[in-house]
Amino acid sequence: MLGKLLKHELQATSRTMLPLFGLLLLVSALTNLAMRGLNGSRELPPIVSVICVILLILFMVGVMTVGIVTLWMMVQRFRRNLLRDEGYIMHTLPVSIHAQIWAKVIVSGLWYALSAAALVLSVLLMAADVEFVRDMGKIFGELFHAVMGNVRNVEILLELLGVMVLAGIFLSLMLYASLAVGHAFSKRKMGLSECIFVAFIVLFNVLTSVSSELLRTLDIFPIAQDTFIIGAWRAAMGLAAGHLVVYAAILYAVTAWFMKHRLNLD
């Protein structure tokens, strides 16, 4: 049944996300043309220069919009589909509450990843053959090697991606848990959900500070001097992953409990 939930969740969300990605890539291609124009000639007519600048601004707005819409979509889908009227249909399907939550987590994770891929692609498209963006890429690459030494880029990238996936799941579950708790009340459901979201942030910050201090005192992650930077990187990634897994498990339990025992679809 999880597969069927995923299929319908993807259908529901792709109506918004795919056109958005298409629009972003179109703006990126146009921005690329504009930047070539700005880069290649100093004698552009004023109106063309203005259009080029507008396109550049549109590109930046587009990048931000993709991030915001992905987050907004995730919140709205969970709320509308499971906690408001559509919930009468969804909660009477012969599927467990766990399948319902996982379907939302997996699909939102997928859209995070696709949004990130669309953003990278749009930057590459925008920067294709544009000299100064290429130069900036080179500088960042050299800086990376200088800092990280002979560690392969792909390892670092995979570690970072793993933590980013966990962070995405954690963020989704923090929003879902806040909504599930907030919507258990009869009034001011969204306001309460927002308050609970802030409370979760405070709680996890405190827990992270306490546990990090404890781990530092216990010296669980000894870092050798000769590989200090990569050692510190690995310790940071390990710590982040550990914290995220524990917090995500807590948030999942809160979400599932409230949806099972305190569902309030008024």
Binding site: A12, N81, D85, E86, G87, Y88, I89
Partner: peptide
């Protein structure tokens, strides 16, 4: 059948 229309 819920008391009001709830279909997506």
């Amino acid at each position: 059948l819920p008391e009001r229309s709830c279909v997506p």
